[in-house]
C-alpha cells in the first residue's frame, strides 16, 4: 500500500453542545478512492469542511498530500479538487466559460483552452453544450462541469460530497466511470456519500462514520451489495440505538 495521501488523526470538532467529530482517525492511501458512508449528521460534511479549511478542528491533525491543513490551509487547498453535492455554476456563463473561470482563478498558470475542452470531454459533457449558457443545463450536466473543473485542477487529492445525489442513473454511471479513471491516474479521492451501491462500485475502501467516529472499515471487494447494506444498517443501529 502506498503512503497515505489523506490522513486524519484524532480529529475533533464541536458546534455548541453537539460534538460533530469525536476523534476521527482515517487514512486514504494515494491513488485510491475512499467512500465515507454515514447517516445525516454523522460528520461527513464537517470532515470535508475541515479538509477544505472552511472550519478549524478543535483538536487532532489533518494532512492532505503531506500538508497540515490546520497549519497551512491555503497551501493544503492547492492540493485539493472539490466536487460539491450540487455543483453551482454561473448561469449567465457557458459551461466552458465557467470552467475557464473557476480553473483560471484557482490556477497560477494559464491553461490552454484545448486542455480545458479535453477536461469537458473527459467529464462526459456533450460537446454541443459547451458554449451554451449553464442556465439551461440539467443537474447532471452541471455535475459534469464540476468534474471538469476538478479534472483541470490536476490536484493529487479530490474531495467529493454526495457526488451522485440527484443524478439520473445514466449520469451517475458516467460519473463512476470518470472517478475510476481518475483513480487509475493516481488521484486520491475521499467521497462522502449515502449511496451504498455507488460507493461499492467505485471505492477501494469504505468507512462507516457514525457519531463523528469511524466505526468500521470495509473492503468492498469482499462484500456483496446486500451484505454491505446490512452491515451499514447494523452499525448505525448499534451506535445510535435506533432503526436506521
Amino acid at each position: 500500500m502506498t503512503e497515505a495521501a489523506l490522513e486524519l488523526i484524532g480529529l475533533r470538532k464541536r458546534f455548541g453542545d453537539h460534538e460533530a467529530l469525536t476523534g476521527l482517525d482515517l487514512k486514504v492511501p494515494g491513488g485510491t478512492c475512499y467512500a465515507l458512508l454515514g447517516p445525516n449528521g454523522a460528520g461527513k460534511t464537517t470532515t470535508l469542511n475541515i479538509l477544505l479549511g472552511f472550519i478549524a478542528a478543535d483538536a487532532g491533525t489533518a494532512r492532505v498530500d503531506g500538508v497540515d491543513v490546520l497549519a497551512e490551509p491555503a497551501r493544503a487547498r492547492t492540493r485539493i479538487a472539490y466536487i460539491p453535492e450540487q455543483v453551482q455554476l454561473y448561469p449567465r456563463l457557458s459551461g466552458f466559460e465557467n470552467l475557464e473561470y473557476f480553473h483560471g482563478l484557482g490556477s497560477r498558470e494559464d491553461t490552454a483552452a484545448r486542455r480545458l475542452r479535453d477536461c469537458l470531454r473527459q467529464a462526459g459533457l456533450d460537446e454541443a453544450a459547451w458554449d451554451r449558457r449553464v442556465a439551461g443545463y440539467s443537474k447532471g450536466m452541471r455535475q459534469k462541469v464540476g468534474i471538469a473543473i476538478a479534472l483541470a485542477r490536476r490536484a493529487p487529492v479530490m474531495l467529493l460530497d454526495e457526488p451522485t445525489s440527484g443524478l439520473d442513473p445514466q449520469a451517475a454511471w458516467e460519473l463512476n466511470n470518470s472517478l475510476r479513471s481518475l483513480a487509475e491516474q493516481g488521484v486520491t479521492m475521499l467521497m462522502a456519500t449515502h449511496d451504498l451501491f455507488r460507493a461499492r462500485e467505485v471505492a477501494s475502501r469504505i468507512g462507516i462514520l457514525v457519531n463523528g467516529r469511524l466505526q468500521q472499515e470495509i473492503d468492498p471487494a469482499e462484500v456483496a451489495g446486500p451484505e454491505l447494506e446490512a452491515r451499514y444498517l447494523q452499525e448505525v443501529q448499534r451506535v445510535l440505538g435506533v432503526q436506521a
Binding site: I80, P84, F102
Partner: peptide, 11 residues
C-alpha cells in the same frame, strides 16, 4: 454555493 467552490479552488 459558488463562493464555497471558489474558496475550495484556493482563490
Amino acid at each position: 454555493g459558488t463562493l464555497r467552490q471558489l474558496l475550495a479552488q484556493g482563490v
